[in-house]
Design a binder for these strands. Structure first.
Lengths: 192, 192
DNA sequence: GCCGTTACGTAACGCGCGTTACGCTACCAA
DNA sequence: TTGGTAGCGTAACGCGCGTTACGTAACGGC
């Protein structure tokens, strides 16, 4: 008896790998099977069809991302808390680059897929709410345009993620960190 | 005798339309022919293969984008000049939304296509240089981290473009303008 | 008025895709 | 030992794709 959930997570990991290496165009069941070092028979055995495989892969990835943010724990300084959360949204290592890459591909696919679009909207808004709250905590007295600032913060993060995904050598981790810190200084005033 | 260049531009416009509506996956020669209201025979007649069609479509789109920025003309206030240029990078109307959409799709495709990647890098860097120069003009005395600020400005723009492309109804033109202005105020100090 | 050339439309080819049916092997209960 | 089932591998099917070959109508120089 094999562990079905574990097998499914293995296949989902293969999906991420293929999407990262070949894009959504290159994501064929045969490519997934190759990446998972098995045949398409196994894939077909664990997922009804291609769509079910993709949905599972998306869900697992999203769960891991939120889990990583939740696992950050407590911070004394609200500003450091915000900073730590922001770092999770930007491709600082291989895992987060994989996350950002897959996210970007699914985002573009969402333009022509109502299901993907609905998921994106929910997560985007929730992301903005989270950052708005963190930003509010980081300010002594929150400015009137707090939500707009949070929205811009998200946009900056997505833009940086895109840069890091498209050209990792031009946007190494230290540059991304400096970019985030620079914006934070602009928002909250230079760190003492 | 028909005007070859005009025909090619018509077909390129059909490419943009299909990419915008169906993504790069949906970009088939038959779909392009449908959008151009002709048969695949005509497409095959004017372009050696699909790749030539795509290259031409990218080139024409890029030429139009740079032409639009160059056509902005002279400004008395450097800050207003910068602001006007920034507005061109964000999907404020249907044409610019089309531009941003196609740009984003090709950017994701660049991850697995060396030719597209090389083009992207060149244009990205030139974009950063242009904004660095404009930003320098807008400052009385440029700060030390001028280039990093310009880089963040580009990232913000790309992030906002992505938001406007994915969810136009959540990011209407006036919100995008306010977002850009907000960041500009943060960078240069609130407008008098 | 004829004839080559331009400007396509039409249709077929091979390929890779997702899907599905089928077959085999290992394992576990009886 | 034997029957059944879980866990796959293999192979074939139809479809849509890019490409290409071929047909043909209109046009323009002689």
């Amino acid at each position: 008896m094999v562990d079905h959930d574990e097998r499914r997570e293995q296949l989902s990991a293969a999906v991420w790998q293929v999407v990262s290496e070949q894009g959504l165009d290159g994501l064929t069941l045969r490519a997934v099977a190759d990446a998972a070092d098995c045949t398409t028979g196994r894939v077909a055995h664990y997922f009804r069809d291609k769509n079910a495989l993709l949905t599972h892969a998306r869900d697992v990835m999203h769960r891991r991302m939120t889990a990583r943010i939740d696992a950050l724990g407590a911070f004394d300084d609200p500003r450091e808390h915000l900073r730590a959360v922001l770092r999770e949204g930007v491709p600082l290592d291989e895992e987060r680059r994989l996350n950002s890459t897959v996210w970007a591909h699914f985002l573009m696919a969402a333009r022509t897929d109502p299901v993907l679009l609905a998921e994106h909207v929910v997560r985007h808004e929730s992301w903005i709410r989270r950052l708005t709250a963190l930003l509010r905590d980081a300010y002594g007295v929150p400015p009137d345009d707090l939500e707009l600032r949070a929205r811009n913060l998200v946009a900056l993060l997505e833009g940086l993620a895109l840069c890091g995904v498209a050209t990792p050598e031009l946007y190494p981790p230290d540059l991304l960190v400096r970019a985030v810190d620079n914006h934070l200084d602009l928002l909250l005033g230079a760190k003492k």
